[in-house]
Structures are given as C-alpha cells and as structure tokens.
Design a protein around this nucleic acid. Structure first.
Lengths: 250, 250
DNA sequence: TCGCTCACTTAACATAGGTTATGGATAGTG
DNA sequence: CACTATCCATAACCTATGTTAAGTGAGCGA
C-alpha cells in the first residue's frame, strides 16, 4: 500500500527495479492513513511545507487563490497520485490543497523523502532545481488562466527582472532582453499585436521603458504590486530547507 | 563552472552543504562546452532524451509546436539555468528546445544524473513522479495558452479518462467524476457558464455523455483526435528508461 | 545612397468568451 | 411532504483579445 501503490513505484516494481531492501524501506515508511472528508483542506498556501501525501481514495486538488476572489486549480489528484512533492525544496507551500470528496490519504514527511536520497545533497539539489522549475511553470499557468494581458505581461517582465537580477545581469533597473514580441506572445499565449498594444499601455503608465532589446523598469516595486508578485517561489533560497535537514541528520 | 554555477548549487555551496567530495564530483562531470549560434536547435520534440544542459551564455527556450502552426513557449532559460531536466524520466523529449541568441552550453548525460542519485531506484522513482507531474502541468499550460474552450475541455476529459483507466476506474468507457462545472472552470481558466456551454457543444456532437457525476465517452479515440492528444507524457511507463540504466550500471 | 527586410505600432473590425440573469432539475433536511 | 440549497442550462448583452491591414523606423547589404 501507500507509496508502493503509486503509479511510478508500481511500474518500477513490476520491472524488477526495486530490490527487496527497497520494498522493505518503502513499507517501513508506512504511516497511519488519514480519513478525509469532502472539501477538507490538506494545507494552505504559505503554510509550512513538511509533508506530502499519497491519495488512497477520493479526489483532491491543489489550487491558488487569486486576488480577484477566484481560484486557479493546478491539478486534480486521483487515487494513486502523490500530492505535495511540488513543495519539496521550499519551506512554505506554494499552493493550497484540499479534498473534493471523502477519501483516505497516507502522509509522508519530507524528512523521509530526504533520507530516500541517501543524504546526497547533490541529488537533492537536482531535485530542488526541478521543483523550482515546476514552480515557475505553475505560476505561469496561474497567469495564463485568469489574468488580463497587461497583468500577464507585467508579471512576465518582473519575473525576468528578478531572475536576471539574481545572476547580476540587471543594472540601474535596466536589462537586456533578446526577445521579439512574437516570442513573448508565444510564451504568454497572446497575439504579437496584442503584446505590442500591451507594451504601449504599460509604457503610458510609466511602468516599462523599452528601446529595442533594452528594458528598463523605472519602478519595479510598482510592477510587483500591480501583479501582487509572490516572489517566494523564485527568490527563496531553496537550499535553506535542505541545509536544515543536513544539519539534523548526522 | 558548469553545474556548480547553477543557481541552486551555488546556494548549496554557499551554505556549506556541499562537501569537497561533492564538489570534486561536480567538477569531474565537466564536459567540453558547446558553442551555439542564434536559433540553433538543441533538440526536437519526440527526439531521444538522453541529456540536459547548463546554459552558460545566451538565452534559450523550450516550446511545443501546435497543430495550428503556432507554438507555445514553456520557458525561457537564462544563463545559469538548467535546460532539459524536464525530460528526465522519459525516453523521448516532451518539448523542443532552441537558443535565442548566440551562447555557450555545457551538456550532461542523464546517465551522470542518475549516478548522482546513488543508484537508488527509490529516489529515482520520486524524481520521475515529480517530472511526470510537471509534464501534466506543461500540457495544461499549452492548452490554456492557445486552444479554444471545446478543445481544452475535450483535452481535460481525455486526460482524466486516461488517468482513471490506468488505475482501473473506467468501465465501458464510463467513469465517475466528482467535479462541479465550477471546479472544472477553475482548472481550465474559464467561467462556469462557459463550461456548461462547452459541455452542451460536446454533447451535441456525440463526444461526451454526462449525467451528474457519471461521464461517458462513447468514442474516446474521436476525442483524442480532436485534441491530437499526445499520450506519451501520461502513458509512457517512465521507469523504462531507469530500468535500462539500472541494468547498465552494475 | 538606395532599397530591402524585419520588428514594431496603430487602427478598424470580428468573435470567443465573460457577465448577469432566469428558470429547472435534483438532493438533502426538518 | 414542503423548503431550501446546489448544480446546471440557456439567453441577452458586453468586452477583451484575435485578425487583418497599412504605415513607420532601424539595420543592413548591394
């Protein structure tokens, strides 16, 4: 049951990739199942991230609450799915999760997951990188789903700005962006014409100045407020969580 | 350089989480850098997935070509980003990748990545699970970006159908779906009213029959054709790639 | 210098999908 | 058996964005 019942693990198992030792370890991880009732919340956005769950019965979903009162659902979880590895590598939850109908889940701590990696901080680093990438993807999804063009573009520019800043490629709030408006349109799911319109709009509001590939954000914070940018997913120094763990386990 | 220069690894390193042994290992992985010219393709969708890259200079992006001739960009890669772990766990590429301007990349084989995991097939399984989840997310993103409501809904239903079929919850092309149209709307980024409209449309075309929570797809393949469903990302038994590796490394 | 191409801007028009509203079926509850 | 709360269907209307088109300016090669 539990982890062994997961789609991927069943696959590994059926192909003889799992040793008896592996299986024993998995079974040892087995915790007491938890019975959940319909629409019960597993965790909330920004809550402390310390565990993930295998869904045994029932449907669940993860979602983000949006400023306009609606929500964007990131994924529905069916029996056999793992819910919550999305946040592995972060200290706080990037999204809320709840049940849809009654069900049963098996919780596992990230600590256990960490031990699975044999305390190799390299492997953990790779995993964290992957998770961070997924976080970016989720964030984009949220914006594609429910936000207007100018909010999407503002969000996009601010994300690029932050990412470039981390690697020291921003100077005086200005950076080089070698993208055509067509490429940006392909990323944001809007027509190149509308990208241009939207840039004009942001320019008129004094939020973005652009000359060819040079982009300047006169007031980055204003942009961030416009889109209520949640920078935890990009700015958090992921390894924090891991270095804690590394210290905890000799 | 190379992997050590990656955002996450730098973070680990600065916090003393990386032992000298770890660092030596990373340096050992160093391969000859590859100079890329503008718009040069790294790999194409469906190509064999065997390596990932660290971007040293230049910008790159990953994208999916759509049936209507346009493309959806999944992510832009800046210097220091890792490009291609998305496909770790799959035998074929889920998306194409190309450079935007001239640049330099460092390639690494999945084989090396695998060894990082200390040959623990459990850890690899967790990683694969996470990657599969990300693949689902990317697929949804593609649909949110560029497809019309009826295509999105058809795609959504077919995905649920496949996922339920894997766990034996489909009988006679019919399954239980405990979702309200409001929830579906929140997932697909459309209003509940339009979800209803779209269901009516699909019903009139004989593609979907629904009574309360009971959903029946009289001709699943017709649905799949409508959305040109690429089931490799959901149906492929990921562990294949790993069991090959496991066999290859004693 | 001329002329070509490419990226962008702006405008006019078309439409998919949002919004608001109303009514009908079903399930739950006292 | 009412009474109510959901969920869903359909309609009328509105708006953001797509589409098509025409014009501008920068870069670049002949």
């Amino acid at each position: 049951m539990a982890l062994l019942d997961t789609v991927v693990m069943r696959g590994l198992s059926s192909q003889g990739a799992l040793s008896n030792e592996d299986k024993a370890f998995l079974l040892e991880l087995e915790l007491s199942p938890r019975h959940m009732s319909a629409s019960e919340v597993l965790w909330l956005e920004n809550g402390h991230a310390d565990l993930f769950c295998v869904v045994k019965e029932g449907w669940g979903y993860s979602y983000r609450n949006l400023k306009n009162g609606s929500k964007q659902i990131l994924k529905f979880y069916l029996p056999g799915d793992i819910i919550g590895i999305r946040d592995f590598g972060f200290t706080r939850r990037l999204a809320s999760a709840a049940m849809i109908n009654d069900g049963v889940i098996y919780p596992f701590s990230y600590q256990q997951l960490f031990e699975l990696f044999g305390r190799s901080s390299l492997a953990v680093g790779i995993m964290a990188t992957a998770m961070r990438q997924q976080a970016l993807l989720s964030e984009r999804l949220v914006y594609l789903g429910k936000y207007a063009a100018h909010e999407q573009l503002a969000h996009f520019l601010y994300e690029i700005y932050l990412r470039l800043k981390r690697i020291g490629a921003v100077e005086d709030n200005s950076f080089l962006m070698p993208l055509t408006q067509e490429l940006i349109g392909d990323a944001l799911g809007m027509s190149p014409v509308h990208v241009s319109r939207t840039f004009s709009m942001l320019r008129e509001e004094g939020l973005v100045i652009r000359d060819r590939q040079r982009v300047k954000l006169p007031d980055p914070e204003a942009l961030a407020r416009l889109v209520e940018f949640n920078d935890s997913y990009i700015d958090e120094f992921l390894p924090h969580a891991f270095s804690e763990l590394l210290r905890a386990t000799p």
